[in-house]
Amino acid sequence: MRNEHREYAVNAVLALGLLAVPLWALWANEPFTITLCTRIAVLALAGVGLNIALGLGGMVSFGHAAFFGLGGYVAGILAQHASSGAPILGLPGSNQMLVIWPVAMLVAGTVAAAIGALSLRTTGIFFIMITLAFAQMVYYFAVSWPAYGGEDGLPIYVRNRFPGLNTMRPWDLFVVSWGLLMAGIGVFALIRGSRFGAALMAIRQNPDRAASVGISPFGVQLAAFALSGAITGLAGALMADLSRFTSPSMLAWPMSGELIVIIILGGVGRVFGPVAGAAILVGFEVTFGGMTEHWKLWLGLVLLGVVLFARGGLLGLIAGRERLG
């Protein structure tokens, strides 16, 4: 119980800290710090998505970059059609975030369902390799299909709009991202506490026993995987707006690795794990990226240290090993 209280305290610090730092930056006129916090929020949201599949469902996906990138492409493609006026599949484009988000979730979720339906025919190590391979297929397609920029990617010259806010201002975009992150975390917590979540975790622990009490592992896992892909896709749409750019590198395998790293650094299956993980990763990148061109070597060593000696991630270190799942 004590551990649980401590985790609640850490969660509160993370949620409010992520709000307080940009507020300070706004006051001190440090716009880049706000941008950095927005990046943390967006990556954390992508991690929250992956955490549903990986943390709750035990599905180790090495292909979530595909959903992240697809979300980004939805934002880029809809914005491009909105500015050119040309219809896409008979429908007009849009530069409204409130239109783009559901479409991004729908597209990423649908593709996740398709990939999931194929990958979930297998388990374990097969699953890792298959999700990686399918993500790579989407990547190669994006690189070689010229209609939306191919390898060059797709610029978003003016960020997509949100009613009542000026998304070109760093603070406004941060508020949007932070709000979505909190909503995503809320959804995650709801799922974890729901019957659906209980079924998902039961399947992770023992698929045969779950099946024997009448839970269909395939259906539950597929639904979780699709939802997981949809939330990561939503984060991708936000990332495209943050970078004002979508490119195939959002779809490439290092991105998938980064999302896994975010979850593990924070603590697998923890509600606020991805927030802690994203903050550590971005902080590491900004601090060491400026100091040495070999920062990836140090990142590798840190990750190795975490796997060998700090398995629960940051939240595991602070709030104790046992998982609240």
Binding site: V60, G257, I260, V268, L297, G300, L301, V302, L304, V307
Partner: peptide, 13 residues
């Protein structure tokens, strides 16, 4: 497998 993925990913870096 998750720990194996992370450790060998770290080895790539």
């Amino acid at each position: 497998h998750l720990d194996q993925v992370l450790a060998t990913y770290a080895l790539i870096l």
